[in-house]
């Protein structure tokens, strides 16, 4: 092969390698780069006002010192979710349409909790009420290195699922404020 031909082939291979590497780089940027940037951007947003509107007609008074994880918060008219961070304790409220009874709603939430590897529901469920009169069920669960509480309420064809999890000591410290917050959950509050 003449030198000119060899050079052309070499150039073609280099261009091909650069093109493939560019595709790979773009893929890596999406798979690892974006999540890394996402982790680097602070998640919390300060809370304003006494009542926080979760969405779908539900509002709550956040516990003292709580911040909102904006990336896990989805307000909406039909479905809504919020994740409060109280220190290292995660306090989540999820509202979604539900047509069944309170026992079925609790069963669904337990199934969801147990679907996470290592999570186990512990003890019996008990009745729980909010200040605004919502009646529900609550219980506890454990996970490796963490423990948690859950509660579920029904309001106007919607289920309001509450889960709280954190390290044993940290959770104990924050639980009183979080319990007050759970009691403050109301439907049709600040609309």
């Amino acid at each position: 092969m003449p030198d000119y031909g060899r050079t052309m082939v070499a150039h073609r291979l280099v261009r091909n390698l650069l093109g493939g590497a560019a595709v790979l780089a773009a893929l890596l940027l999406v798979v690892f780069g974006l999540p890394a940037i996402n982790r680097a951007v602070p998640t919390d947003r300060s809370l304003a006002g006494r009542l926080y509107e979760v969405g779908a007609g539900v509002s709550v008074q956040p516990p003292p010192g709580a911040r909102v994880d904006a990336s896990k918060t989805r307000p909406g008219d039909e479905r809504a979710a919020v994740l409060f961070l109280v220190g290292d304790v995660r306090y989540a409220i999820v509202v979604q349409p539900f047509g069944g009874q309170i026992a079925e709603a609790a069963d669904k939430l337990r199934t969801k909790i147990k679907a996470t590897q290592g999570y186990q529901v512990t003890g019996d469920e008990g009745a729980v009420d909010t200040v605004s009169g919502l009646a529900g069920l609550s219980g506890g669960y454990t996970a490796p290195g963490r423990c948690g509480r859950y509660a579920v309420f029904l309001a106007d064809g919607r289920s309001i699922e509450v889960t709280v999890s954190g390290a044993q000591l940290e959770l104990q410290r924050e639980l009183a404020g979080i319990d007050d917050s759970i009691s403050s959950i109301r439907y049709g509050g600040v609309r």
């Binding site: 940037i37 909102v68 990336s71 918060t73 307000p75």
Partner: peptide, 9 residues
């Protein structure tokens, strides 16, 4: 998530 953080949930 970035849209939620940089603009609003």
């Amino acid at each position: 998530d970035l849209i939620a953080k940089l603009i609003s949930p």
